Amino acid sequence: MTSDPVKQAQGVQSVEIGSRLLAALAANGKSMMLRDLAKSVGMPASKAHRYLVSFVRMGLVEQDANTGRYALGHFALTLGLASLARIEPVSLATPILEDLCEEIGETVALAVWGTNGATCVRCIEATGPVTVTLRTGIVLPLTTTATGRVFAAFYQSPLLKKVLDAELGVAAKAGKTTQMALMREFEERLTEIRCRGIARASGGFAPGINGFSAPVFDHTGSMVAAIMSGGTIGHFNMEWDSSLALCVKEAATKLSIRLGYGYANAGELRN
């Protein structure tokens, strides 16, 4: 086994020691007194203070003039946002999708909002005797598929409303009803999806196919993708509290956290 070249290289020990204070502030999530901050990293307060003076000058840390408490500064925020901007959901999703596929034994996929709607961009097919086949590039209807519904419930885009209106218009003509009536019915469905944090559909993608889909959020709290799974009716459990549903939600939560969505907010997705 080859050793990590980064760990082998000579570094600046004082930087590594001082960074423990920054890590403690980030983990704590709120401002801290010097004594508490120093204690949390096992460092004498006088030593911690010297590091903090430099960090304040750099903008990595700020100190409240009234309380004396320390918190992460504007430059730390700039660095964090720059790192988050480099994150690409599809590449981060791949190992999560692989684990999910292995855990539930069903085909799984990642969808994002493309130029024409909710679009499958990554798919991992299960290896069982009867599996659902998805192809990348396919656009999923908003009203009849689990992934379409979860985008309709959580995604914010002017284009989404246009696509939804067009789908409901076609459905209204086919069903000899009004578009307004269908919209009221669909809004009730979306309310349930928002409450449960996951969408389901049966036969919407293809006859005989059930599916679940859960939203993925980024560091701004915006939906950026959906993790979905599909299987055959009679084999794929469609109960809201089934192990399949819970696994899909958990996978979406993991990816949301990787994309910078806060742990407190991510906890809401599990409920």
Rank of each mutant, 00 (worst) to 15 (best):
T232W: 00
P129T: 13
R194L: 07
V56S: 04
E239S: 14
G260M: 06
F151I: 06
T107A: 00
A266Y: 04
E192F: 12
R20L: 15
K254A: 11
L159T: 14
Q179K: 04
G208M: 01
L92V: 07
V41R: 01
T145S: 07
F186N: 03
L168A: 05
K162T: 13
V112C: 06
E185F: 15
T191V: 15
Q8D: 11
G175A: 13
A201L: 05
M43L: 06
K162W: 08
A71T: 07
R50Y: 11
P141R: 03
S40P: 03
A201E: 04
Q63L: 08
T127Y: 11
L79T: 07
A9T: 09
T119I: 03
S14N: 11
V216P: 03
A85F: 14
A225D: 02
L92Q: 04
M183D: 07
E88G: 13
S256Y: 05
L259Q: 03
R50K: 14
P207A: 04
E192P: 06
R200K: 15
T119M: 03
T191S: 14
P89N: 09
H219K: 14
T191F: 13
S83T: 15
A174L: 12
H74F: 14
D165P: 09
S31Y: 02
D165I: 07
M183Q: 10
G211Q: 01
R122Q: 04
V170T: 08
L190A: 13
A26Q: 07
W113R: 04
A264L: 13
A181N: 11
E167D: 11
G68W: 05
L255C: 08
G169V: 11
C120F: 13
A126L: 01
M1D: 14
